[in-house]
Write a protein that binds this DNA or RNA. Structure first.
Length: 797
DNA sequence: GCTTAGGGTTCG
């Protein structure tokens, strides 16, 4: 029987000549002779009958616990069982069982893009394949994860049973002289640079939950032994570092046996260790440590909330920034300067420095199409960076740190003025030295930033080859949604003003999408579309108590509530604090009856002569109530209910005041008609009336969904909490008067002119807040709101 | 053999 159940008490039956290989390393070219894989059954599909006595069954097996591979996705693999093996597996194996499989073949998984599992699948047929079922409490029959001889395999992760348990000291508890292990979030770093001694030196500063910032200096002769830090916020784990005093504060240096592993610091991304160690320990505790530090860092305002990474499309003169790009070509200029020709698929709104070098000294493509040429930034790197640049191969993806955008003319060494333009351009310099982390780093192809960059670049290449020849200039602008090149930076029409005071560089929308919630971003974008188109749908009623939001009821609904309320009219016990009377309306139309309306006035207010301040109005229509607003400050519509005064259904306004209508929350109000005490009250306003009547006042709010766009992506964001600031109009005013409504309409038209192309739309400098919220299905997702931003009104209107 | 650097913009 090809399915063996190794129950408790029986001796291990997995043949001893088989060696285990990690699931993650399997490829279609792996020699799987005499190999086994081990993992937990995380999914068991149904037994499917193909023909009489012929079956197929699909299961997913996941590598267990301590073993961690290059990519967490490739820890789980689809396993297809055939024939009686499938049938027996179905009978004997349950989800959660740990199984060992042998005698399999490896195929390409046709579902890799759908299920994101291992790119291969394992095929087990009756002839030769075996499944051994281990119960979880049962000892592993062949625990070594891999045999020693398989040295060609990627990094082996040590087995938890043998590995020492590492302990990590919090950065607030460092003792001088001790050699310890630490975790920390990177708040500053320099790429390794050549020291005057024998080693390269990395400088970094890290922080953890103890809120202690600690400087670290790492000396290693080999570059690959240095921390692989790509950006601030990355998380490092260092083993065997020594704490010592320097300048009266404690710092860390590496000691013998030092090792470092780096992780991306973005909440929600895969926890993938970056290391060149062939052997390193990593278990669930490490994963948890990384995730805790990520969440902690995301909640800390003291950490920089965004990276300094700026695409070429957002580069401004004089800016120091980090550029993620692809190297297309390079050329030595002189001994202290090298030219790097790079691009990131976005178009810089400024004219770029053109550097003409002779083709024979250029490494990589010497010339490009005119369209492509306009997207290429010429980066001049100096001094110590020349040596790093020398080793770069065209095609690699880079991040250049602390690159400087220099406006105006710049002399390029060895070139005459006819070779480089000297007016109105941006030049990019990577100055000598390592201040502010200045340097160059090659990014691995699998990094999220490179993946995103590739996507943008590929989109361009498709456009470049197929569509662009047919497009006219204005279409080009629309495709790229960048301002026309002939505009000066100063003249680029930015229609908003931020008041947030954050000191941050703008990021692209694709970067925003990659960051998790709990962050604030600055973006430069255009408005692609918005909802709702009809203004009154943007106006909502919000309860600050239960945080519910509802539409403002239309007049038809309100009028029907008034009509229904007056149907129940009957005799009423007037409360002792009120006086009843009748008022007559001035009616324009002769056909309507000149019926008098019953009102109740507050005795106390009447005694003070304030007869116009508050009335309780019985059995009126909506129209009549509105008419009386001209004569009375506060009108509370009431009805009779079993001989007592009662308020109308709370779908209707409970108060008409100062040309405005006020609503109460049905869920949170305990409405009852009581005496409204005016004692000590200067102005009887909606808050006082609501409180007296036991009503939870609903607040008028504006809610608009904006679809933003930049060269990298589109993003739906909400305009809500700061919508009034954005429009410079209060929602309450917008609910009451046409002027305020027109102002909002004009603002939206100016940002998104009806019928206008993207090229004509103004650019908006926005502050965005990313946060977590539940959608209608109870799923948590990241939402965005525009904050601290005001639209600048055109002065002509 | 057991240092090197010890963040805080070039000066083209």
């Amino acid at each position: 029987m090809p399915v063996h159940v190794l129950s408790e008490g029986t001796r291990p039956q997995v043949p001893g000549h088989l060696t285990r290989i990690p699931i993650s390393v399997i490829t279609t070219s792996t020699d799987v002779t005499d190999k086994i894989i081990k993992g937990k059954v995380v999914l068991k599909g149904p037994l499917v009958s193909l023909a009489a006595d012929n079956f197929i069954l699909k299961t997913v097996i996941q590598e267990e616990g301590s073993v961690l591979s290059i990519s967490s996705q490739s820890l789980s693999i689809n396993v297809i069982l055939f024939g009686t093996l499938a049938k027996n597996f179905n009978h004997s194996v349950y989800q959660g069982n740990v199984v060992v499989a042998s005698g399999f073949t490896v195929g390409k998984s046709p579902t890799v893009h759908k299920d994101n599992l291992h790119p291969c699948n394992l095929l087990l047929s009756e002839d030769g394949a075996h499944i051994y079922v281990l119960h979880q409490q049962h000892p592993d029959p062949r625990s070594p994860p891999a045999s020693k001889k398989s040295s060609s395999l990627p990094p082996q992760v040590s087995n938890t049973a043998k590995a020492p348990k590492y302990t990590y000291v919090k950065l607030g508890n460092l003792k001088a002289g001790s050699v310890i292990n630490v975790y920390g979030v990177v708040v500053f770093f320099k790429q390794p640079f050549k020291s005057r001694g024998t080693d390269f030196c990395s400088t970094l500063k890290i922080i953890d939950q103890s809120n202690q910032k600690i400087g670290c200096t790492i000396f290693c002769e080999k570059l690959e032994d240095h921390p692989k830090i790509f950006q601030i916020g990355d998380i490092v784990r260092m083993h065997r570092v020594k704490a010592q005093f320097f300048n009266k504060s404690i710092m860390l240096v590496n000691t013998f046996g030092f090792s470092v592993v780096t992780f991306d610091g973005v909440v929600g991304t895969a926890v993938e260790p970056r290391t060149s160690s062939r052997s390193f320990h990593f278990d669930q505790d490490d994963r948890q440590m990384v995730e805790e530090l990520r969440t902690w860092a995301a909640s800390q305002a003291v950490l920089p909330t965004v990276t300094a990474t700026v695409p070429l499309s957002a580069v401004q003169p004089k800016l120091y920034f980090d550029l993620t790009c692809q190297l297309l070509a390079k050329a030595p200029i002189d001994t202290t300067c090298t030219l790097l020709r790079v691009w990131d698929g976005t178009r810089c709104p400024h004219t770029l420095l053109k550097v003409i070098v002779e083709p024979h000294i250029t490494e990589g493509q010497a010339s490009f199409s005119k369209e492509r040429e306009n997207l290429i930034a010429n980066v001049l790197v100096y001094d110590n960076h020349v040596e790093v640049a020398r080793q770069l191969k065209p095609g690699v993806f880079l991040r250049i740190y602390n690159l400087r955008a220099i406006p105006g003319s710049t002399k390029v060494p060895g070139l005459t003025s006819s070779q480089s333009e000297e007016i109105d351009h941006l030049a990019f310099h990577l100055h000598g030295g390592t201040s502010y982390g200045r340097g160059i780093r090659v990014l691995p192809d699998n990094s999220p930033d490179v993946q995103e960059l590739k996507r943008v670049i590929e989109a361009f290449q498709e456009n470049d080859e197929e569509e662009f020849p047919e497009l006219n200039n204005s279409d080009l602008l629309e495709v790229w949604s960048t301002p026309p090149e002939y505009l000066d930076a100063e003249k680029v029409d930015c229609r908003t003003e931020r008041s947030c005071g954050h000191d941050m560089q703008p990021v692209t929308l694709s970067e925003v999408k990659q960051s998790g919630p709990g962050r604030v971003h600055h973006v430069n974008v255009q408005l692609r579309a918005y909802e709702p188109c009809r203004f009154h749908e943007a106006l909502k009623l919000y309860c600050s108590n239960c945080t519910s939001m509802q539409d403002v009821p239309d007049d038809e609904l309100v009028a029907s509530i008034f009509r229904d309320a007056s149907k129940d009219s009957g005799p009423i016990n007037v409360p002792p604090w009120a006086l009843s009377g009748q008022i007559k309306l001035q009616r324009d139309s002769p056909d309507s009856s000149n019926q008098a309306l019953t009102v109740h006035l507050l005795t106390q207010l009447m005694s003070e002569g304030k007869t116009k301040d508050v009335i309780l109005l019985m059995d009126s229509t909506l129209e009549e109530t509105c008419q009386l607003m001209a004569s009375y400050q506060n009108i509370i519509p009431v009805r009779s209910s079993e001989g007592h005064l009662a308020l109308l259904d709370l779908s209707a306004p409970f108060l008409f005041r100062d040309r405005k209508r006020y609503y109460g929350c049905k869920r949170c109000s305990k409405a009852v008609v009581r005496e409204l005490s005016a004692e000590g009250v200067e102005v009887m306003d909606e808050k006082i009336v609501a409180e007296a009547l036991g009503i939870q006042l609903l607040q008028f709010v504006l809610l608009v969904k904006l679809e933003l766009q930049d060269a990298t992506d589109t993003l739906d964001v909400w305009l809500w909490r700061h919508a009034e600031l954005f429009f410079s109009v209060s929602a309450e005013d917008a609910a009451a008067n046409q002027e305020a409504q027109n102002s909002i309409r004009q603002t939206m038209d100016s940002l998104c002119p009806p019928g206008g192309s993207m090229g004509q739309r103004p650019w908006l400098d926005l502050c965005l807040m990313a946060y977590q919220a539940e959608d209608d299905d109870g799923q948590t997702k990241t939402c965005y709101q525009v904050c601290h931003t005001t639209v600048i009104k055109p002065s002509s209107t």
